[in-house]
């Protein structure tokens, strides 16, 4: 388990170093994901402990957004001022984006498993 966690953190670290060195506009962990993916392709499989650690992290992915989300307490004034464009913009634009990309994906791929 510690080995897998080390591997994940190491990929993240390489990612952080990489984006800094290359000056690309993506966060270190996203490049770290690409590095981890390349490593898995080379290795030809996911080890059991690595699978377990990643499944555990991802099962509770939504928990990890709580601390940043609570940051809303800092912006009550701005949100009150711009509540209409923010509210409508968030709801309409988000749902439109989800529907458009899902519909195109559905149209351009063969039928897979259904929900």
């Amino acid at each position: 388990m510690i080995q897998s966690l080390t591997a994940i953190l190491f990929c993240q670290l390489l990612g952080e170093i990489g984006v800094n060195a290359l000056g690309i506009p993506i966060p270190g962990p996203v490049l770290g994901m690409v590095i981890m993916f390349a490593y898995l392709m080379m290795r030809g499989g996911v080890s059991k402990p690595l699978g377990e650690v990643s499944d555990t992290l991802l099962r509770h992915l939504s928990l990890l957004f709580v601390p940043a989300g609570v940051g809303i307490v800092l912006h009550f004034d701005l949100l009150r001022e711009d509540w209409l464009p923010i509210g409508l913009g968030l709801v309409i634009s988000t749902l439109l984006t989800i529907v458009v990309s899902a519909a195109i994906m559905r149209r351009l791929t063969r039928k897979g498993e259904t929900t």
């Binding site: 953190l9 993240q12 994901m33 993916f37 898995l40 650690v53 990643s54 940043a68």
Partner: peptide, 19 residues
């Protein structure tokens, strides 16, 4: 922030379901 920090490793871990 300990929870917040785990966002980075979790992003890296997304490579596994993708693989």
């Amino acid at each position: 922030q300990i929870i917040h920090f785990l966002l980075g490793p979790a992003t890296v871990a997304l490579a596994i379901p993708l693989y």
